[in-house]
Nucleic acid binder design. Structure first.
Lengths: 186, 186
DNA sequence: ACCTGAACACCGTTCAAGT
DNA sequence: ACCTGAACACCGTTCAAGT
């Protein structure tokens, strides 16, 4: 049966999940699908477009935030949930950052962030800016942890990964943001 | 005369500044230096090590913060200065993020950030965590703006770059952080 | 409509051999 | 000590030609 765009994207996500961005090449993907490399370009314009599609799949899998908690707590909750979801996929931070450059704010988790930032007390005029700050904190935290793991594979004379202290550091940052929000309310 | 490690790094920085990360290949660098690709590997272990060296050069060029301003203002000042310095070099955010994974907190501008975060009222126990938050905000902001410019080259049917609104958004984020810091003081 | 074969113009890295 | 030549195992993308 004929190859489909869906199939290409799904297999790409699978490859990313299993081996990381370094092994997600158009040629490797074609091999995985039992097809010549050129065939992919009938379904997808180029690799960048494919990666945006991959990022959309990853973001769509992030659970929606519960609605029964106070706003500040809920905001930290989604931020942590997004962070943990991305941490599970190798190089997810890089892939999502690229997608975010192409279509900023279009993914659902971003819109969740913006809404909760507003509920947590931000002025309407600052909603998107603060949501972006939270997003940068998430992506930066995930990228740092994932890149550190990647570097440690090659260069094993570095400080231990210490994932729990990364999580702690992330929450300290979120607490500062939440406090800054509440203070800004008028 | 023989090639030196310094020369390799300096030429790499030059290539990055002029053409971006996409044209900073070991082979292109060797050509620029009038040498065979293999020669580079006598001076540098691999490309990753070279990029860390390149990042160190970029960070070393960032001016030191003035000491005559109130701490909160000085903190925002360095953050803006680091952001502007990195914005001038294509793909600087990616390069610095990689270096940060290898040697977190070793570069001088990072230490400046941590010191000013402390002066601005953070508990000593939260100093590095908040400095990291500021760093993520800087790198995220720079990466978003630079990747957006890069994408616009290929895909010219997107919203205009709007660099000034990026700068505004960055300062809104810094204001939230600074407020969150002051509130946390005891 | 969908895919293959083959090419084009590249990569990072290694390593025997030269000077 | 420092570098070349040549190779190894790859890339992303294009495009005539096939079915």
């Amino acid at each position: 049966m004929a190859l489909s765009r869906q199939q290409v994207v799904t297999t790409a996500v699978d490859l990313l999940r299993r081996y990381g961005l370094g092994d997600l090449s158009m040629r490797r993907l074609a091999r995985e699908l039992g097809v010549a490399p050129g065939a992919l370009y009938w379904h997808v314009a180029n690799k960048q477009e494919l990666l945006v599609e991959v990022a959309d799949v990853l973001l769509a899998e992030i659970p929606e935030p519960p609605t029964d908690r106070p706003p500040a707590e809920a905001l930290t909750g989604v931020a942590v949930a997004i962070r943990e979801a991305l941490l599970r996929v190798p190089d997810a931070a890089d892939v999502v950052a690229l997608a975010y450059a192409v279509e900023p704010g279009s993914a659902r988790p971003f819109r969740d962030l913006a809404r909760l930032v507003h509920d947590a007390g931000a002025a309407a005029s600052e909603r998107d800016e603060v949501a972006t700050l939270v997003l940068h904190h998430i992506l930066g935290s995930v990228a740092a942890q994932q890149n550190r793991a990647l570097v440690a594979q090659v260069d094993p004379d570095l400080p231990a990964p210490a994932a729990t202290s990364d999580a702690k550091a992330f929450e300290v940052g979120m607490a500062v943001i939440v406090r800054g929000l509440a203070t800004g309310r008028d």
